[in-house]
Amino acid sequence: MNAHTDNIAQYNFAYLDEQTKRMIRRAILKAIAIPGYQVPFASREMPMPYGWGTGGVQVTASVIGTDDVLKVIDQGADDTTNAVSIRAFFQKVANVEVTTHTADATIIQTRHRIPEEPLNAGQVLVYQVPIPEPLRFLEPRETETRKMHALEEYGLMHVKLYEDIAQHGHIATTFAYPVKVEGRYVMDPSPTPKFDNPKMHMSKALQLFGAGREKRIYAVPPYTRVESLDFEDHPFEVQTFDEPCALCGGTDVYLDEVVLDDRGGRMFVCSDTDNCEARRAEGHRGHLSGEEAAT
């Protein structure tokens, strides 16, 4: 322990003071006990800007210990600048082991994606959340939305989704697609593409959500029903892609569209960089990988 504490003499372990950690830990326990309910917490000002993961960082800092292995992703990638920055923050203030491999991590902090590889029991997935209130864009007042949750009054959300169907023939929400947790609370899954919604359902991992600026923490315990809102005649559907990943040939994964030139040239590659690399290490190849497929 001394080796750890010596390195970080200027901060407490994991940056937050112990009283703040206790306050956040109590909020996390309540969040787990009431799946999908947004627990107000006294979010602190962090050394990174609001909107850049302060909620996720506070949750991770309150959960993390010296035995943990941390992975941080943004847009599914370990090497996006804000993921790099947050990972470096925890290396500095908690001297914690980090990884890019989904399976090796005990805590994964994420922005906008859920890893493709199914998570394991004991893993904790920490989401950075900008606007935790799924009803916020339908009703901007907290005093009103709190009542709606209390009364389980979600008609407004169904009306909004149904208006989409009336106008477009289908639901026109592609990310931050609302879910219902264990048949009770309507919850914002954070701005992940709806492609990732099914991964939340009955996940083996504990899912924690931190919204720093909005001062809310919520949770989905493992093995919990998470259902995307839909209608009998318009069942929920996820995005599909017309071609496989150009690097690993993966299908049934979420792809980023990369523009190659100004003449309309483009390619599609995995958003989950770790999953893509693992597949290539196993010998999978896409049409632009530039390498021979393993034989």
């Binding site: 830990r25 326990l29 787990i32 210990g65 004991g122 949770a219 315990p221 493992p222 093995y223």
Partner: peptide, 10 residues
């Protein structure tokens, strides 16, 4: 805390 958290989660 981690013990309580895991116990509460499972």
């Amino acid at each position: 805390f981690r013990a309580v958290m895991q116990a509460m989660a499972e």
